[in-house]
């Protein structure tokens, strides 16, 4: 049985509940981690957990796990090109050399 092409796939009730509870636990976790000072790592951990939550929503609530590859590529492209915008703008900002005005 090919899961990828099961167009009218019905996700079981239990699966949804497990995912939901995981999301709530991860939310509690992210709040708790924010109270502990890991320095600069705090931001990475927060977004790391957010990404795990996002993947759960995408894969299970939005059924990407059972979707055709094309739709996954379409959604992934959005994130990919966003990253591109960020990286190149960042390269500009961090490599700027302040110059004294001669005026």
């Amino acid at each position: 049985m090919s899961e990828h092409h099961d167009v009218y796939h019905v996700t079981p009730f239990k699966t949804y509940m497990v995912v939901f509870l995981s999301l709530l636990v991860l939310t509690v976790l992210t709040v708790w981690v924010a109270t502990v000072d890991f320095g600069a790592a705090n931001a990475f951990i927060a977004f790391g957990i957010a990404t795990v939550k996002a993947m759960l929503v995408l894969l299970y609530f939005m059924h990407l796990k059972y979707e055709v590859t094309t739709n996954r590529v379409i959604m992934a492209s959005g994130f990919f090109f966003l990253a591109l915008l960020f990286i190149f703008v960042l390269i500009d900002i961090v490599t700027r050399v302040p110059v004294e005005s001669t005026l």
């Binding site: 992210t30 924010a34 705090n42 931001a43 927060a46 977004f47 957990i49 957010a50």
Partner: peptide, 8 residues
Amino acid sequence: FPLLYLVE
């Protein structure tokens, strides 16, 4: 949520 509320 983390961006605005949690990350300082």
